[in-house]
Design a protein around this nucleic acid. Structure first.
Lengths: 144, 144
DNA sequence: CTTTCTGCAAAAGGTTTGCAGTTAG
DNA sequence: CTAACTGCAAACCTTTTGCAGAAAG
C-alpha cells in the first residue's frame, strides 16, 4: 500500500534535514496516515494506545509541531485537528475540502487560485505570503 | 463616527431576532469595534477593565458565541481572536487578510472567487457550503 | 560519545457547565 | 411578570515548560 511509501518519504525528509528518526515520530506519522479525518493530539494518543503503543501527550505535541514546520502535516483550522500532508512541493498553497458529515478531507493546490487571491489582497494593500483556505461542504458519499 | 452607527445596527439585529439588548452585549460590541486587531475573550475583558466596565469572562464567551452565530462577529482562526464583522449580507463568503507584523486585518468578500472555489471542490466530488479563507501577509504600512 | 529527543510532573491557559440571582421587555 | 441573561464557582480540557534520563547517529 502507498501508506508505507508515504511514511518512508516523510522519514527521509526528517533525515535529510538532520532530524533523528525515532519511534515516536514513526508512530505519529503512521497514526496520521491511518486516520481518515483530522485528529487531535489526544486522539492520536488514543489511537496508539489501542495498539499498545503509548506515547506521552507532550511528545505528540512536539512531533506534530515539527511535522507541521516541515510541511509533512497540517493543522486543519476548521476542525482543530491534524492531517498528514498528501501533496508534493511547489504546487502553491495547500487547501482543504472537509466534509461536514463524515469529516473526510481532501487536500489540493491550485496556482491559479493562489495568484487570484494574491491579487485580491494586493488591491487591499497587502503582500500575501500564505493562503489558508478550507472549504466546508458535503462529500460525494454523504450526498443524498 | 461610523463606529456608533455600526453598533446600533448590530443591536438592531439582536432586537429583530428576539434577543435582548443588554449592557454586556453593548460593551463587547463596543470593545470589538475599538480593537484594531483580533482580540481574545480575555483581552476584551482587559480592555473593558481599563474603562471600569468589568464583565465576567464566561459572559464574554457567551456574547461572542451569539455574535458569531448572527454573523455580527467572526473568529479569526489564524490568530485565535475575534473581530467585529464589517460586511453586509449576501456578498459571498467572508474572508480575511491579516498582517503578520501588526495584526491589522481587512475583511472582504468576492462572489467570483467563491464560485471558482466551489467549482474546484466540485471536481473533487464535494458540494461546498462555506469557504473559510484567511490570508497571511504584510500590510502596506509594514512593508519596507 | 554527544547532541537530540522523550517522559514526567507540574503549571499555565483557555473553555465549558450548572445553578442562583438579576434584568430586559 | 416571565423568559432570557449574567455572575460565580468549579470543573474540564488543551497546551506549555523545565528538567533528568534515554536513544539516535
Amino acid at each position: 500500500m502507498g501508506t508505507m511509501v508515504q511514511i518512508q518519504e516523510a522519514l527521509e525528509v526528517l533525515r535529510s534535514k538532520g532530524y533523528k528518526v525515532t519511534e515516536p515520530r514513526r508512530r505519529v506519522l503512521k497514526a496520521l496516515a491511518e486516520a481518515e479525518q483530522p485528529v487531535s493530539p489526544y486522539e492520536i494518543q488514543e489511537m496508539l494506545g489501542r495498539k499498545g503503543e503509548y506515547l506521552n501527550h507532550v511528545t505528540i505535541y512536539r512531533v506534530l509541531d515539527l511535522l507541521c514546520d516541515l510541511n509533512l502535516a497540517h493543522k486543519v483550522l476548521l476542525r482543530g485537528g491534524f492531517v498528514k500532508c498528501t501533496l508534493g512541493k511547489g504546487e502553491g498553497c495547500h487547501r482543504f475540502v472537509v466534509c461536514r458529515e463524515c469529516g473526510t478531507l481532501k487536500e489540493y493546490a491550485d496556482k491559479a487560485l493562489c495568484a487570484e487571491e494574491s491579487e485580491m489582497a494586493r488591491d487591499l494593500g497587502f503582500r500575501t505570503e500564505q493562503h489558508f483556505s478550507e472549504f466546508s461542504g458535503v462529500c460525494s458519499k454523504c450526498q443524498g
